[in-house]
Design a protein around this nucleic acid. Structure first.
Lengths: 173, 173
DNA sequence: CCGAACTTTCAGTAAATTTTGAAGGTAAGC
DNA sequence: GCTTACCTTCAAAATTTACTGAAAGTTCGG
C-alpha cells in the first residue's frame, strides 16, 4: 500500500470511529489528518485535503483546540495560523478521558445522587425496585469514574504494568 | 422528590447519556423505562409512557433485544408481547462492552493492522511519522481491547477487587 | 379457514445536525 | 490610515438521522 492511500484510509477510519462516539465525522477527520502530518498545517491545507469549507475547517479546529487535542501555532514571518495535533496517543486518550468525565460522567453522577433521595417507602415494591436500580447504577458509574481518574493521574507505564499484572493473575486462576 | 418525578428524571438523564454515546435517545429512554419498571411492559404501555409511535417503539425494542439488554416475554394467556430489561447493571455494562468491542474496536484494529504494512522507507520523515502514529494507536487500542476482554470475562467481584488493589498501591506511592 | 389481536415493515415526513459561503472582523505591512 | 491576507461568525441550505402511521404480516382461538 502506498503512503497516500494509507493516510486516506486512516482518515476515513478515524472519522467513522469518531462518529460512533459522538464526535462529528469531520472533526475526527481533521484530527486524523493532523495526526499523520509530521509538521503543522494551515487552514487552507486542511480545507484542500479534506474538501471542506473554510467555515467548517475553522469551527472544527476550534472544537479540537477546545478539547485540548490540537494547538494553534504562530509561525514568525507568517500571517497565517498553523495547527498541529498532540502526537502521543496516550496523551490524547488522557485528554479525551478528562473531557468526557467532566462533560458526561459528572452530571450523571450528580443526578443519580439526587435520585437516591426519593421519598422511598420500603413497603412499595415499585419504589424499592427503583431505588435499587439507581443505587446499582450509581455504584458502577462511580467505580468507572474512579478508574478513569486513576488512568488519567497515572504514568502510562505504571498503568499498563498494573493492568498487565492483573491480567496475568487472572490467567493463572 | 416523588417517585414519578424521579422516574421521569432518570429516563431523561439516561436518554441524554445515551445520545452522547452513540445510542439514540429514544432507545436509551425505552431502556431506562424498563429498568425502573419492576415487572415487564407491553408495547402499548411503553408507547404511552414515552409518547412515541408504535413503529418507533417496535424498532427500538428490537434494537435493545439485539444488544442483549432487553428480553421479550410471552405471558401465557396473553397474546401481546411483554418486555423486560436485565436489571443487573454489571450485566448490562458487560453486554454493552461485548457489543461495542465487536462492532467498533475489532474493525478499527483490523484497519490499523493493515496500515502497518505500508511501504515505508525509514528515510522518508513523512512515512516514519505515519508509521509511528499507526503503531502507537494500535498499541493503545489493543491494550484497551484486552482490558475490556478481561472486564467481560471476569467476575464482578474479582474485577473490582483487583482494581481496588491497584488504586491502593497507587495511593501509597 | 376466518377474523381478531397484535406485531412488523417501510415510504414519507419531520427533526436534528452538519456544512457552506458570504459578510464582517482583525492585524500586519506599506 | 489604507490595503491585503487572513480569521471568525452565522443564517440558510444540505445532509443525515429519527419518527410516524398506515398497510402488510403473523399468530391464535374458534
Amino acid at each position: 500500500m502506498q503512503l497516500d492511500e494509507a493516510k486516506e484510509k486512516f482518515i476515513q477510519t478515524w472519522g467513522a470511529l469518531g462518529s460512533n462516539w459522538g464526535i462529528n465525522r469531520t472533526m475526527a477527520q481533521v484530527h486524523a489528518l493532523l495526526l499523520v502530518s509530521p509538521g503543522s498545517l494551515s487552514a487552507d491545507e486542511i480545507m484542500e485535503a479534506l474538501n471542506i469549507s473554510r467555515g467548517n475547517a475553522n469551527m472544527n479546529l476550534r472544537a479540537l483546540i477546545d478539547w485540548g487535542l490540537v494547538t494553534k501555532e504562530h509561525k514568525s514571518g507568517e500571517r497565517r495560523d498553523f495547527f498541529y495535533a498532540e502526537k502521543d496517543i496516550w496523551q490524547v486518550a488522557q485528554q479525551v478521558i478528562i473531557e468526557r468525565r467532566k462533560r458526561e460522567l459528572k452530571p450523571v453522577l450528580k443526578v443519580l445522587e439526587e435520585l437516591r433521595e426519593v421519598e422511598g417507602q420500603a413497603t412499595n415494591p415499585e419504589a424499592r425496585a427503583f431505588a435499587e436500580s439507581v443505587q446499582n447504577l450509581h455504584s458502577i458509574v462511580a467505580q468507572a469514574d474512579k478508574f478513569l481518574e486513576i488512568a488519567v493521574t497515572a504514568e502510562r507505564n505504571w498503568f499498563f504494568e498494573s493492568l498487565f499484572k492483573m491480567f496475568n493473575r487472572k490467567l493463572q486462576s
